[in-house]
Design a protein around this nucleic acid. Structure first.
Length: 120
DNA sequence: TACAAGCAATAGT
DNA sequence: ACTATTGCTTGTA
């Protein structure tokens, strides 16, 4: 598989921002659409999901490390349920991120791009 | 170029 | 549980 620089890809600037941010997620960690939005200054998580859905860089860009803000597993491959989701869960399990009943077991695995944890 | 519809979500009611 | 909001992509005229 070819490693194509993001610069030469046929993508929009927004998509490039999203992928760059996703690449910063360390192995064994996950982040949420919310955090991604904060990181790249986008207040519309749906746009992020759409960008990831059209991800031409799978699996070079670990789009499986994105979960929903309430720590549910979120969606994958354009769906919110089905075999794709099971695969996403398995991929995360391989990286040491454990899920329980469709929810992230250890919130400690959340990667917040060096920002402070959300004031809840 | 202009407009409408859709999306792997989230917050508020 | 349901609706509103939100930024961006894509398709059609």
């Amino acid at each position: 598989m070819r490693m194509m620089p993001l610069e030469e890809a046929d993508i929009t600037p927004f998509q490039r921002r999203v992928y760059e941010a996703v690449l910063e997620i360390p192995h064994g960690f996950v982040t949420t659409y919310r955090w991604l939005g904060l990181a790249i200054g986008c207040r519309s998580p749906r746009a992020i999901g759409q960008a990831l859905r059209r991800n031409p860089f799978a699996p070079e860009v670990p789009c499986h490390r994105i979960v929903a803000s309430d720590l549910t597993i979120g969606g994958f491959a354009g769906k919110r349920q089905g075999p794709k989701i099971a695969k996403k869960r398995r991929l995360l399990a391989e990286e040491g991120v454990r899920f329980e009943d469709g929810r992230l077991a250890d919130p400690n695995c959340l990667f917040t791009f060096g920002m402070e944890t959300p004031a809840r």
